[in-house]
Amino acid sequence: MTDTQARLSRLSAARWRLAVILTAAMTVIYVGFILLVAFNKPLLATVLVPGLSLGILLGVLVIVSAWVLIMIYVRWTNANYDAAVADIHRDHREGR
């Protein structure tokens, strides 16, 4: 039981770490974008090619970054977390 708990706590901590990093990354990206919009409007108004301003490009990239962060989380958990949980769960049941 204590072994199960210790292993679960470790796994829990690993998932929590990733979750917090990804959440923090999203917050920084989004708040950074809002700060740029608030404080440097001329920079975002820069037209890169006709029809595309830096602001539109960065805005689309913020949306893309949300997808990427979710993909990172889903791939990590599908590949590592699920198997680890199944392992601990099996040992836990057999240990009883």
Binding site: L18, A19, V20, L22, T23, M26, I29, Y30, F33, I34, V37, L44, S53, G55, I56, G59, V62, I63, A66, L69, I70, Y73, V74
Partner: peptide, 20 residues
């Protein structure tokens, strides 16, 4: 452009939902 700011705001909550 300002409309894009709104769309982004409604999307960036989802990584929080999935992670936490």
């Amino acid at each position: 452009f300002d409309g894009l700011i709104y769309s982004i705001g409604f999307l960036v909550g989802w990584p929080v939902v999935v992670c936490l």
